[in-house]
Design a protein around this nucleic acid. Structure first.
Length: 152
DNA sequence: GCCAACGTTGGC
DNA sequence: GCCAACGTTGGC
């Protein structure tokens, strides 16, 4: 079982909405490195939900991967913002995962708190200028994040 | 709203 | 294959 971190802007899709809907397809990722991480996710893996472009940004909860290597249908939607004219049904370019809600942390961990607790080597999201929306998280770091998230 | 970081595109 | 121009992300 591996740990990941996935970003979303709460204005676009926040953890409250995931809690209401319980499950969602993580569509619309259009960065190859992020896609490659998505493709390597396994059912049962866990992902920290990170709110980006908000004040404060940070880790707000936990999700679980329930389906892997799902063809992202938004690449075929000619009217949608994630349409990819180079994608075909025979050769889709974008795969993603389905996730389910696990929990919202009592104590959300802001980016500044994460910076205090972890180095950029330990946790990529604290690295300055990191724009990847899907990142791996080391097991040991994931354990420490979950401990910190339980503190008052 | 600004702007640094950085990924992508396309001319050559 | 280089690299300038351009677009996007996301913290602040």
């Amino acid at each position: 079982m591996s740990y990941w971190l996935m970003k979303s802007e709460p204005e676009v899709y926040g953890i409250d909405r995931l809690q209401r809907e319980q499950t969602t397809l993580w569509d619309g990722v259009r960065n190859y490195q992020a896609r490659n991480f998505l493709k390597s996710m396994q059912v049962g893996d866990r992902a920290f939900f990170y709110h980006s472009n908000t004040n404060p940004p940070g880790i707000v909860g936990m999700m679980e991967i329930t389906e892997s290597m799902v063809v992202d249908p938004s690449q075929f939607d000619g009217d949608g913002e994630y349409f990819d004219p180079k994608a075909t049904l025979e050769n889709p370019r974008w795969h993603t995962v389905r996730v389910k809600y696990v929990q919202t942390f009592d104590h959300a961990l802001s980016l500044s708190e994460l910076r205090e607790a972890f180095t950029a080597e330990e946790l990529l999201v604290v690295k300055q200028g990191n724009r990847l929306s899907v990142l791996p998280v080391l097991d040991k770091v994931a354990d420490r994040i979950m401990l910190l998230a339980q503190l008052p």
